[in-house]
């Protein structure tokens, strides 16, 4: 295994495309090092992207924020402005692992690890976040939900990597929230999760919504039927029940050591309801 720490995007792309064997990109490393330790991957090349320009900063852009690929979740959590605009995204990112893991883990890493249970991803999908993909060619912007294609798999081509994630501007009376279910209070992988992002009209009715679910399908699900279930509502009980039902119906989870199909289908609906209530309150809604 070689370890390289390129100083430019072009150099990183060159290293990655030039490697004949297996390569891995290293930002926070909290997934990569676990895989190395377990012998799950034995890369010939590890490219540390933390020296690339801009990857360690959070920059305001077009009313939203551009989050560099090497921004740790701890650093993200300390950014009051991002937290104010996208509280659900930040709380999702901040739920990953321990305080120690927070000091290293990144949202981009969480996305590229492509676990269906990744905490940040449902929140990013609900937020309509966009990933900037660099590589041998020109940079391109790709909606976050298009990146993972299945457990451990992404759409990124050989030599490509993500340099930042863009969180867009928000209309007034907007907010998001993320909830996951874990057996303990910390340190677990989500058994099911739900992110809700919504915008209210002046009457406190939901004018726009996006609902994304984690750990209930091979990739994070963006569930339009769930969003529709609460559109126009003030989150009255029938709307919440319809939301939960839509989420449970959309879920196609598996039985595994962390939970059963039945449990995941039930709980993902519960989480969506609860997340919707939080987002609604954050957006200024009175329920």
């Amino acid at each position: 295994m070689r370890y390289e720490k390129p100083q430019t995007v072009a150099e990183a792309a060159r290293l990655l495309t030039g490697e004949k064997g297996l390569s891995r990109i290293l930002a926070g490393g909290t997934d990569v090092l676990v895989q190395l330790k377990a012998g799950l991957v034995e890369p010939d090349l590890v490219v540390d992207i933390k020296a690339l320009p801009g990857v360690r900063s959070i920059v305001a852009e077009a009313g939203g924020f551009r989050i560099g690929a090497a921004v740790s979740n701890a650093q993200l959590g300390e950014d009051k402005a991002v937290r104010a605009l996208w509280p659900g995204v930040v709380e999702a990112a901040n739920l990953i692992g321990s305080t120690q893991v927070q000091g290293r883990a990144t949202m981009v890493g969480n996305l590229c690890n492509a676990s269906p249970a990744a905490d940040a991803v449902p929140a990013l999908v609900a937020a309509g976040a966009v990933a900037r993909v660099a590589g041998p060619g020109a940079a391109r912007d790709v909606p976050v939900e298009k990146i993972p294609t299945g457990p451990g798999k992404t759409k990124l081509k050989r030599g490509e990597f993500i340099t930042s994630i863009f969180l867009p501007a928000r209309p007034p009376r907007s907010a998001d929230a993320y909830l996951r279910f874990i057996p303990r209070t910390e340190m677990d992988i989500a058994v099911a999760s739900a992110a809700v992002s919504l915008t209210l009209d002046e009457d406190g009715r939901i004018a726009a919504a996006r609902v994304a679910l984690g750990a209930v399908a091979p990739t994070v699900l963006l569930v339009e039927a769930a969003a529709k279930a609460i559109l126009g509502s003030r989150l009255e009980d029938p709307a919440l029940e319809a939301l939960a039902a839509a989420c449970s119906a959309a879920a196609s989870p598996i039985d595994d050591k962390r939970g059963t199909v039945e449990f995941r289908k039930d709980v993902v609906g519960v989480l969506a309801k609860r997340a919707a209530r939080i987002a609604y309150t954050r957006a200024g809604g009175q329920s």
Partner: peptide, 15 residues
């Protein structure tokens, strides 16, 4: 590491 709490098992020495 630079004031940030981390797990040293999850970081390469080269970093």
């Amino acid at each position: 590491v630079n004031g940030r709490l981390v797990c040293s098992c999850l970081m390469l020495a080269a970093e």
